[in-house]
């Protein structure tokens, strides 16, 4: 399947490891030039851009906290000046600070909302006018099944990922007149650092609930994102697609 994204300029937030890294590399394999935003993992970011440039694509890693509106605005401006108009934005940056509500600190709530949800606002706002002027663009927001179903012990994460779902639907309707697609993917349990910390017993319980009896791979999420930014999905917008091995039906 030809994706039609050759030479497009793509930005992936949280692209230094895990799902974000897999998405960035997958987009590069399809011919896009990919800029990675990251927050802490310098080595991971460098490794990711090495993989992208090995595909013969242009790349750069920009360190910026997506919860910081000015930092994001400056980052997108720098990208536009160096690479040209942004065609694809993947809002992937996300953190967890799990706790039951009765023990959750205000800072734990706020940090997750600021990064996971406000980060999506900041990045989308910084690219939207450019996409509107082009009358084309693709935005994919990485939500989570936690946002679809709500997960105890994750009210901050669930709220932020649920908020991403509504954000996606509203923005899709705003930008449809300009031919811009906005969709979300909701991964289940994916083999990344984020689930490394889950106790073995809990992992086993999760596996029992998953019809495919395995966790997903970051590359599988990346394949779905590639589809959603390609020409083949031109008529898909405002949608949230679960990718969870059948966990939520």
């Amino acid at each position: 399947m030809k994706t039609g994204i050759e030479n497009k300029i793509a930005v992936v937030t949280g692209g230094s490891h895990g799902i974000g890294r897999a998405i960035a590399i997958a987009l590069a394999k399809e011919g896009a030039h990919v800029i990675i935003n990251y927050h802490r993992d310098d080595k991971g970011a460098q490794n990711a851009i090495d993989e992208i440039t090995a595909q013969g694509r242009r790349s750069k890693a920009i360190k910026a906290d997506v919860s910081n509106y000015s930092a994001v605005t400056n980052m997108m401006k720098d990208i536009k000046n160096e690479f040209g108009s942004i065609d694809i934005l993947v809002n992937n940056a996300g953190i967890t600070r799990d706790n039951l509500l009765m023990r959750m600190k205000v800072e734990e709530w706020q940090e997750v909302i600021n990064t996971n949800l406000s980060g999506v606002f900041n990045c989308s706002k910084a690219v939207v006018i450019g996409m509107m002027r082009q009358k084309s663009g693709k935005i994919v927001n990485i939500s989570s099944i936690s946002g679809v179903t709500g997960v105890p012990g994750q009210i901050n994460y669930s709220s932020s990922k649920g908020g991403i779902i509504s954000f996606t639907k509203a923005l899709a309707k705003e930008l449809a007149p300009l031919g811009i697609n906005v969709n979300a993917v909701a991964p289940g349990f994916i083999e990344t650092k984020m689930i490394d910390g889950i106790p073995v017993q809990n992992k086993k319980m999760a596996l029992d609930l998953i019809p495919f009896k395995r966790f997903g791979k970051p590359e599988e999420v990346a394949s779905l994102v590639v589809f959603l930014v390609s020409e083949a999905s031109s008529y898909i917008t405002g949608q949230v697609i679960n990718i969870d091995g059948g966990l939520v039906t």
Binding site: M132, R133, E174, L175, P177, L178
Partner: peptide, 11 residues
């Protein structure tokens, strides 16, 4: 006024 009209005015 929606996004499309707003952009048309700007353009």
């Amino acid at each position: 006024v929606d996004s499309l009209l707003a952009l048309e005015i700007i353009a």
